[in-house]
C-alpha cells in the first residue's frame, strides 16, 4: 500500500473538515465544569421536551420526557424498568423488544413522546404475581438461555410470535423469532420453548 492516502480518502477529508471547523478556535484547552456548577436535576429545554401519558405493565405514568428519549431509555433510565435490554440501539438485535398496544416492537427505535395513550408491556409485566407466564416457564424448562441478556426480548417477542400464530412448525418459529439475536446460541431451545408455550394456549 502506498504511503499516500488515495484521493477522496476518508481520513484526509475528515481531517480537512474538522480542521476547517477549528479555524479561529485553535486547540481550545477546555476545562471541566466544576461539579458544583452542575445542576442536580436534568436541565431540560421546554421546546424540545414534552409530556407523555402511557400505561406500562398496567400502571399509568404521566411523564415529561426529552423528545429524543427512546422508549427503551425511558424504561431503563427514568423508570427503573431495566429488564428490557439495550443490545445495539439500532433495531438490529431485538434485545429491547417490548409490546406496544399488543404488537412487538423495538423499544430503541420508538420515541417515547409518540406513545401518548399507548399500552406498553415489558418483561416485567408478563408474570401474574408469582405465577410465571407459560413462556417464561418454558424458557426455564428448556434452558432456552445462557447469559440471560437477550432473554427478556426473546420472551416478549415469543409471546407475540405465539399470539400472531406463527408457531405452525419449527421452521416458522425460527423465521419469526429471527428478529432476536442470541449470541450464546440457544436458538434450538428457544424454538422448543416457544413451541411448548404455544401448545398450552
Amino acid at each position: 500500500m502506498s504511503e499516500e492516502l488515495p484521493k477522496g480518502s476518508v481520513s484526509r477529508r475528515t481531517l480537512l473538515a474538522s480542521t476547517a471547523s477549528l479555524t479561529g478556535v485553535a486547540a481550545t484547552n477546555t476545562l471541566v465544569a466544576p461539579a458544583a456548577v452542575a445542576s442536580p436535576a436534568p436541565a431540560v429545554d421546554a421546546a424540545t421536551s414534552g409530556q407523555v401519558s402511557l400505561r406500562i405493565n398496567g400502571d399509568q405514568h404521566t411523564l415529561t420526557v426529552d423528545n429524543r428519549t427512546s422508549l427503551l431509555d425511558l424504561l431503563r433510565e427514568q423508570l427503573g424498568l431495566t429488564g428490557t435490554k439495550k443490545g445495539c440501539d439500532a433495531g438490529a438485535c431485538g434485545a429491547c423488544t417490548v409490546l406496544v398496544d399488543g404488537r412487538r416492537v423495538n423499544g430503541c427505535l420508538t420515541l417515547a413522546r409518540r406513545l401518548d395513550g399507548a399500552e406498553v408491556t415489558t418483561v416485567e409485566g408478563l408474570a401474574d404475581g408469582d405465577e410465571l407466564h407459560p413462556l417464561q416457564q418454558a424458557f426455564i424448562d428448556h434452558d432456552a438461555f445462557q447469559c440471560g441478556f437477550c432473554t427478556p426480548g426473546q420472551i416478549v417477542s415469543g409471546t407475540a410470535c405465539i399470539a400472531e400464530g406463527h408457531t405452525g412448525s419449527a421452521a416458522e418459529i425460527r423465521e419469526w423469532m429471527s428478529g432476536n439475536i442470541c449470541r450464546c446460541g440457544a436458538y434450538t431451545k428457544i424454538v422448543t420453548a416457544v413451541h411448548q408455550a404455544a401448545g398450552r394456549r
Binding site: R76, G80, L81, G83, L132, F145, G148
Partner: peptide, 21 residues
C-alpha cells in the same frame, strides 16, 4: 438441574452492569 437463577433471568430481574442506577 434447571438454572438456579433462571427465574431472575426470565423476569428481567437479573441485574447486569448497565442496569445499575
Amino acid at each position: 438441574h434447571a438454572r438456579v437463577e433462571g427465574r431472575l433471568k426470565v423476569t428481567g430481574q437479573a441485574g447486569y452492569a448497565a442496569d445499575h442506577n
